[in-house]
Structures are given as structure tokens and as C-alpha cells.
Design a protein around this nucleic acid. Sequence first.
DNA 1: ATTTCTTAATTAAACGTTTGTTTGATCTTA
DNA 2: TAAGATCAAACAAACGTTTAATTAAGAAAT
Lengths: 211, 211
Amino acid sequence: MTDKKLHIINHALELFAEKGFEGSSIRDLAARAGVNVAMVNYYFGSKEKLFESLVEERASYSREVLDEIAKNTSYSDIEKIDHIIDNYIKKLFTNRKFHRVLHQEMMLNQRETLQQAIVEILYPNSRIIKGVIEAGMKNGSFRKVDPPLVIATIAGTINQLLLSKRMCIKLLEKDADYIPYEDPRFAKRLGDHLKQLMHAHLLNHSDNSKK
Amino acid sequence: MTDKKLHIINHALELFAEKGFEGSSIRDLAARAGVNVAMVNYYFGSKEKLFESLVEERASYSREVLDEIAKNTSYSDIEKIDHIIDNYIKKLFTNRKFHRVLHQEMMLNQRETLQQAIVEILYPNSRIIKGVIEAGMKNGSFRKVDPPLVIATIAGTINQLLLSKRMCIKLLEKDADYIPYEDPRFAKRLGDHLKQLMHAHLLNHSDNSKK
DNA sequence: ATTTCTTAATTAAACGTTTGTTTGATCTTA
DNA sequence: TAAGATCAAACAAACGTTTAATTAAGAAAT
């Protein structure tokens, strides 16, 4: 991927995150990126292919770290959950604009193939968490829970706060100029909440657990 | 509101939920609703004012029931939470297309005034739940938790499953033709999960609670 | 080193559609 | 007959895209 293409993709990500795909025009994008309108079609073929290139380019942000945590045998099950939560938050906060674009797209009934690609990006994270939960249930350290819905809770809680800044600061009762996503105290607060929540929900207190 | 205006609004809701506001054209809407393209501007003035009328018309779906539950003195705190969860799920499932449109809009940095109106619709629900949680913490039946984030968890879990059907059925590992939102067993499953989650998270087991 | 040639990059302008909106005539209804 | 409702048609603007001309860049040949 050339520098020029990356330069356009980065500005496209900004624009799509703000106005959505349909709400963004190539002329607006070209102006922001400081390139001629024809360059988008020259490099990517079409607006939609630019979107696909963007998703492909950014897709790699996913998975690897969570996978390592899940496989690390020196962690207990609940420690794995804790580390997964922290890393999941960090990853989503860092890539929040891309994440927002993905969810915008997932809400629509358009561009079938692109949606499938997005599922392929997001779902593996769920599989990893699910594996940890099911292992914990099997060996008795976790209670009987509904793994897919536990995942929905972890991802949903983060998304609820990440996808709409306006609703987030309203919930937190902060001023309009507060940017929660750049405040490490907020990331910590969210992590603490999710860990406390998961400990209470998952941990088996009738204690035949292995630590 | 005349029948004709409602008829257009209902079809607009369908279309916006599928393709988003910018992705929907007035011609497409007129064709679906079986009216002339000029009727939208005749009745509503503009596409954007139609959107505002839609939000205004549907906004009343909110609040009332949750408020009654919170004020009902014959319920314990945790019983209030249980009832709020059930009613919240029912309400969001019933109005899921409208709810999806609201969240699409909240993700964008456009139409400032409309976003404020949407916050006014969604936020009161949070205030009610927050009141119950804080009351429970005060009288010792609930543990010390982070009320805004508890709300984010309840709303976020439901939204995670409600806003993208494709991701929902992927999480649940169902076939592509399964429609979770019309399956009462799924609503029950979601309610059970959230209640179990909130019981574990909120209830104070060092028991100086008033049952 | 300079010129030549070839390919890639860049541009302003134009293309054909589609967009939201308006017009002015016609139909409906009371 | 007056006011509202409906319509096909037209409007200007914006859209994604393409064209054709120009510039830039690097290798090859002189």
C-alpha cells in the first residue's frame, strides 16, 4: 500500500466516522486529503472499493493479542477474562473511529459482501472470549452462564460508551467539551466496572474451583 | 397527525432503518409508500423535517412504564431492576426499527438539534434506572457499583444484539434466516441473562439488606 | 551529462445520473 | 367555487465517475 493511498484512506476513515459512508462525498474527501477528486477513482476504482480497501487495510487491528492471552496457561480463567477486558478496551479505544465505521455499516442492509467481511473481523474476538468462558464452566471455576450473551454484555457495554460520544458524556454527566476516549481514567473506570461485573457473574462461590 | 402523514412516516421508518437517512432517497420512499414524490415536501417541508417529524411522532414510546415501576413501593430494589429489564427489552424489541434509526443518527456528527432531541428521548430511561440503583446502594441492598456504567451495560447488551441482526445471529450461532427479534424465547433468554447478571453484580451478600 | 522515451501521476473539465425541491396544472371534495 | 390534495414535469445542485491533456519521474540511449 503506497503512502498516497494510505493518506487517502486515513482521511476517508475520519470522514466516514463523522458523516457515514453515504453522507460522505468524494469531493469532500478529496478536499480534506488535499488531492484531486479523480485520485480516489484512479487509486481505488470507486467509492465503494475505497471503503473495502479501508476495511481490509485496518482489519489487522484485531485478534492477535486476545488469542495469546487465552492460550497463556499461567493465567487462571478469571485472570484471562480480566486481561481480555483490558486489552479489548485498549484496542477499541485506539481504533474507535474505525470501530464506529464498522458498526455504522453493520446497522444497514446494504453492501452484503462488505458486511460479511466485517463479521469476519469482529467475530473472532467473540470466539476467543467464548472459549475461555466455556473452559471455565467446564472445570468448575465459572458458574453456568450464557456465553454468547456474556460476550454481548462485554462488547455491548464498551460499544454503548464508544459509539456515541454525546450519549457517553450524558451518561457520565460530564461537560460537552469532555473527551472521554482520551482520558485514561475513563478507560480504567470502564475496565474496573467490567471486571467487577464479570467476577460477580462468572465466579463460582460454591467453591470447587481451582483458585 | 393525519393518516396520510403517518403512512409516509411509517414507510420512512422502514427505509431509514434499512439504508440510513442519507442512503434513503425521497423517490424510493415515495415509491414504497405509494405516493407522489412531491407529497413528502408538501406535508413535511423537507426530507430533514420529515426525519424530525418521525422522531417526534415516535418519541412517546419511551419512559412511562419504567417510571411506574421505579415508583412502585411494593417492589424491592432488585425486583424493580428485574421489571425494568423485562419492560426495557419488550419496549426496545417492539420499537427496534425506530431504535436503530436513533442510534444510526447518534453515531454521526450531523444534525446537532436532532441529536439533542434524541438524547432527550433516550436519557430519561437512564435516569430512572440510575435512581433505583442509587436508592439500592443507599439502603444497603445493593453493593457499591458505578451506576452510569451499569446502565451502559444494560442498554449496551440489548443494543449489541438489537442493532445488527447479522452479528446477533452470528453470536447465537443460528441460521441466516432466523429472526431473533420475533422469537419470544430469545427475549426471555436475554431477560434471564441480564437479570442473573444484575443480581450477581448488585445484590449485597454481606446481608444487611431488607430482603 | 543531456536527451529521449515510457510510464505513472495529476489535473481541470465535463459526463450522465441522481438528488431534494418546486412549479403549475389538474383533480377532489365539500 | 374555493381550498386542499395530487400529479407529471422541470429545476438547480450535487453526486460518482470518466476523459483528455499535462506534468513528473525514472530508465535507456546518446
